[in-house]
Design a protein around this nucleic acid. Structure first.
Lengths: 104, 104
DNA sequence: TGACTAAACAACTAAATAGTTGTACATTGG
DNA sequence: CCAATGTACAACTATTTAGTTGTTTAGTCA
């Protein structure tokens, strides 16, 4: 694990380190969507959503498909959700541990 | 997956989204270490390492054990490395795909 | 061609945070 | 008690980046 590799890994984690991007990914969980659909779904500005999508695409988390006026974005690798699920599991464990402490 | 939960998840990813912190975690992979040992190992400043450790501890990625003058830090949950391994797998896949493209 | 729409881009502002320097708090040994 | 050492903390600077506004590019349909 060289520092160089760790820098690349950190870069990928950073792409997932933003609530806005997680919400976009979550919205894409069920099906592909256009930018405007994502704007409506999330309530973020169009330019903002577009910028987040560029980053997610650069990191290969989403793929794009242009069709006429619209660009459809979709999850490129379902494995992303595996990462989120692990984190959620950790969150659950934390909260349970905290509740247990408070109960004592 | 409410926005609130996603915010908490993003917070945890953010803790791993820094090369410095990944290097610290990587150094702790084999055994627990004191702050100064980590400073020597990584070459970062003492205050800087300490600050990163506070954050990693707040996110329950490391645990601390005070012994006399020294504070020993260790990985709290080996599962962290599972996350890193998944990311590394993605990196590998990306690089192979890029090489394949260049070869054509 | 010209009006219209979707997405991307550029430039900017505001907020977050990495890293540094200096200092304070503990703990140990003389 | 006093000096030395390891760690944490506070304040600061510099960098990064999220989000906005305004504009540009590309495709569609009359």
């Amino acid at each position: 694990m060289t520092p160089e590799v760790l820098t690349l890994v950190a870069e990928r984690f950073k792409a997932l380190a933003e609530p806005a991007r997680l919400r976009i990914l979550n919205a894409l969980r069920s099906s592909e969507m256009t930018v405007t659909e994502l704007v409506d779904e999330t309530g973020f500005g169009q330019a903002n959503v577009s910028k987040h999508l560029q980053l997610l695409h650069a990191m290969h988390f989403v793929r794009r498909r242009k069709d006429g006026l619209f660009v459809y974005y979709a999850i490129a690798d379902k494995g992303i959700f595996q990462l989120c699920d692990i984190m959620c599991g950790r969150l659950d464990a934390e909260m349970k541990a905290r509740r247990k402490l408070l109960a004592v």
